[in-house]
Design a binder for these strands. Structure first.
Lengths: 195, 195, 195, 195
DNA sequence: AATGAATGAGGATTCATTCAT
DNA sequence: CATGAATGAATCCTCATTCAT
């Protein structure tokens, strides 16, 4: 399996750094190779093309991101707690890795529509985690029973995503995790019984 | 005033169509010129460079977008009604102009960081409209008094933006405006008194 | 005759100024038109094309330049005096009109080979003036009798031209006319009897 | 060292040929690449940009030109002999390489002011060689003691340059080297004691 | 497996010239 | 005579990818 090879990870890490430092469009394959300490051609022994590097960056990093969140909420008993944990971990993980935050919130969004669709595929497991919380919350009557669950997911994800993007664009000057309770309250109230 | 000249608008309209059809990166100036029915060089009588076309597209289109919404809510009496109108009009306007929706939700986001900053400037008046509703809602006690208004704005905008983007990516197969009431309920409940 | 029309001269003068200020390659027709106070299209009522403007600039200015020198030396009795007057007037006239000096010594030389050949045609009368002095000097036995007159002319013109070019490139910081006696001595000695 | 690489020289040689054949302004990078038998992009592995090719052409060719002359005159005992050798070699070298003569005398002079300044820098060593001969000649009392040495250098260089340029413009139809003795006599006499 | 020199397609922009008014 | 808006041809350089070593 290719992911076991050390150079694979070297290249992935180099790509995150290079993109965070230089921006998406100024991140040439040769720059990534240099930062990774390999020859340009070596990149192509591990990745099919440049797009494959970027997808793999997202895949690897979001894979860990999602896995940790999935694990973190698995021990919790109800939707409300799970949602809080998800928000907190979402914010926490991106707070901890500024480069990753820049890459996922700003730089990779400059990619073309094709790549963006692939990125969306990688996000699906995360959306599924959110969907599961919504289903659980509905069952627990924390959320109202006539909830449009697809819409609810978009509202949750859109809210979190916009908040993180704003934080990144403001150069991470404030504590993102501290916002979690209010965001949690906002979503819980938003999705609970109609007045 | 340059905006009065018919060719200026011809070029703006052509740019929206070309970008929606071909995607951001495949939208050459020559393609825009051809669609607009002018010579390549004529573009540069009305715009300084390619970036200026794109900024102007956003400026013109979002200017109208925001103006209409600002006008539409101005007659309404309270924050709740205004918020509903804003959501409805936000969805309605982008529903009516699929090309514009594609361009604003997907294509223009592929631009480089410089252009993105300029686009953010253009969005500011819209964020101000949202801010005003939040202030009004807080005064009317529709929203809770300890609301973090900046966060609230991010939640509202993030929610709307994500919902529209999903709709665009699903190729506008369903009626976006029909979602307005539930989104409205979500936001109102989210921002009202804590349990 | 086109040269009588006032706009013809306006354009010629504007061209000299624009080229001296901006350099040959940055001297667009539109800039010349603006400086001349006429519309771009008006240029083409008086000149066939851009090259024609440049040739005419040289023609007009060098025409006067040569005419004055020819007149200045006509009263003089012998080749030695004539040569001195020619050098002095050559230096004097270009000293008096810095813009013209810049244009003829530096800027017009950046033109393409075709234009340069036409410029050489215009210079011919000046070369003829030099040739006449050489013939006269040979007859007077001031110059040696086995002189290669074509070569002599090239030596005279090359010397004067290089000296003026150096003066222009050093931004005309010293008095060019003061060099005349030494240059004169150099040429006279150079062309006189072999040791 | 880049200059050892064979492609570097291939490109330099191709540039001389292309410029001599097509003229300065019609010498596209792609034409040079084709003549050199390399891809367009390869040019940029050896040169920073088009201007860098042109400067390097002059640098390489004039470097050799000057080096040979400096070497050729180094063995000689006095200023008079050195000057003769310099003239002869100046004429000889350009006679031997018609393309180079066209490029240095006509085409490269069409370059913009920036490039011209850089070309002047490259010429400096040659002017220094001339200066040294002038100093030596003055010491040897071959040249008069009140000689303005800067002016003398301009006279020498201007004379040689104009003679070569005329020869190039007359399509190299006669034997340039044959002119050397007379040019030498002209300069020696010109710079020797006043009558 | 690893290298890195070589490849070559692709596009924004300028500006001399025209011609309808 | 005069205008000036419109035209459209023409080119340098970048960088993802290949392949001989």
């Amino acid at each position: 399996m290719r992911k076991k090879k050390p150079k694979y990870n070297q290249i992935i890490e180099a790509a995150v750094e290079v993109i965070a430092e230089n921006g998406y469009h100024a991140s040439q394959v040769s720059k990534i190779a240099k930062k990774a300490g390999v020859a340009d051609g070596t990149i192509y022994l591990y990745f099919n093309n440049k797009e494959d590097i970027l997808i793999s960056v997202f895949e690897e990093k979001m894979g860990q991101f999602i896995e940790k969140i999935a694990l973190g909420i698995s021990k919790l008993r109800n939707a409300e707690e799970k949602l809080f944990k998800l928000i907190e971990m979402h914010f926490h993980q991106l707070s901890e890795d500024h480069n990753l935050a820049i890459v996922t919130q700003l730089e990779l969004r400059q990619s073309n529509t094709d790549l963006r669709l692939k990125i969306n595929q990688i996000l699906k497991p995360y959306l599924t985690v959110i969907d599961d919380i919504i289903v659980e919350g509905t069952r627990e009557n924390v959320f109202r029973d006539d909830l449009n669950s697809l819409l609810a997911r978009q509202m949750i994800f859109g809210t979190l995503d916009e908040i993180v993007t704003n934080w990144v664009m403001k150069e991470q000057k404030y504590d993102l995790v501290r916002e979690a309770p209010e965001v949690h309250a906002f979503i819980i109230n938003g999705l609970s019984a109609k007045k």
